[in-house]
Write a protein that binds this DNA or RNA. Structure first.
Length: 287
DNA sequence: CCCCAGTCCTGCGGGC
DNA sequence: TGCCCGCAGGACTGGG
């Protein structure tokens, strides 16, 4: 399930398309239900044809391809989507391609096994309103500690659930939320409004540490093997997981059995000893 | 404001 | 052994 580190790895993996010119944008033959592409593919193709790619950005869990007209092609992988420049895992789930010219890279591909992913082409005005309509918070790696705390501190929700709210902070998903709170020594059911300034500092610091380390490891490829980088290679951060999908196994830090609970219909994994309802794990340095 | 259940969708693995 | 159901969860919606 691509979260910020996986999407950032995809972004880095396709940077070679900068400078290429779009020959055509097209759906690929695929017997599955067509994925959502906005606007309609013929209109999207007309707006992209002949455009030079000038940048590849990331916005939370989305890959953003910028062309010279300042239109932005947004790839939203959701659960099983991949942005690739090399051989896709299967041909039957290949959904979309950008045929390229004037480049060593032939084409940019969107592959998605389950088809929940989305593609959208946004004008600069559409993009600006998307950024300012409140549906997407600041990127998890851009937001500073003050802004971070201010976005959560008055909420009565549980911290784990709040971290998944993309309108608060963009980029953190279910896997990394558990890992971040474990490193910070914060219980996932802690209510936001009851956390201290020091605890918010710890969560912010640990969020940055976990996400940056996961980027270094090129993301997490889970047992279903779906996630791949742009060259169709596995990530390796799954080997570093402390709690995610480790229910019943010993905490690597203290040996206590990792617990699984359900919050907002999603699995949360945590260590009840390292993540007490009181305070920060004392051994972790913050700042 | 926030919560919850349902929706999309496919592949897989547990259980019978 | 084979089949079916439920689960995985990112983003969103509608109702309470």
């Amino acid at each position: 399930m691509p979260e910020l580190p996986e999407v950032e790895t995809m972004r880095r993996g396709i940077l070679g398309i900068v400078g290429a010119t779009v020959h055509a944008a097209a759906r690929t033959p695929c017997r599955k239900q067509p994925i959502s592409i906005s606007p309609r593919i013929d209109r999207l193709n007309r707006r992209l044809q002949g455009q030079t790619i000038v940048d590849v950005e990331r916005l939370g869990k989305r890959v953003v391809v910028v062309v010279e007209s300042a239109d932005r092609l947004i790839f939203e992988p959701r659960m099983t989507g991949l942005v690739l420049i090399d051989a896709p895992p299967t041909t039957e789930h290949l959904r979309f391609e950008l045929q390229l010219e004037d480049s060593a890279i032939d084409r940019l591909l969107f592959w998605d096994r389950r088809g929940l992913g989305r593609i959208a082409l946004l004008s600069p005005a559409d993009y600006q309103s998307k950024l300012s309509d409140g549906s997407l918070g600041p990127d998890a790696l851009s937001v500073d500690a003050i802004e971070f705390r201010s976005r959560f501190k008055n909420s009565r929700r549980e911290i784990k659930v709040s971290l998944l709210d993309q309108a608060a902070i963009a980029g953190v998903g279910n896997l990394y939320a558990s890992e971040i709170l474990h490193l910070a020594g914060i219980h996932p059911q802690s209510r936001c409004h009851r956390l201290s300034v020091k605890q918010w500092g710890a969560i912010h610091t640990c969020m940055r540490a976990i996400l940056q380390k996961a980027i270094q490891y090129e993301g997490s490829t889970l047992s279903d093997g779906t996630y791949r980088n742009a060259l169709n290679e596995s990530g390796s951060y799954q080997n570093e997981h402390q709690v995610y999908d480790r229910a019943g196994q010993p905490c690597r830090y203290c040996g206590q059995s990792i617990q699984r609970i359900v919050q907002a219909q999603r699995s949360t994994f945590f260590c009840a000893r390292c993540q007490s309802r009181r305070g920060i794990r004392p051994q972790i340095e913050h700042g």
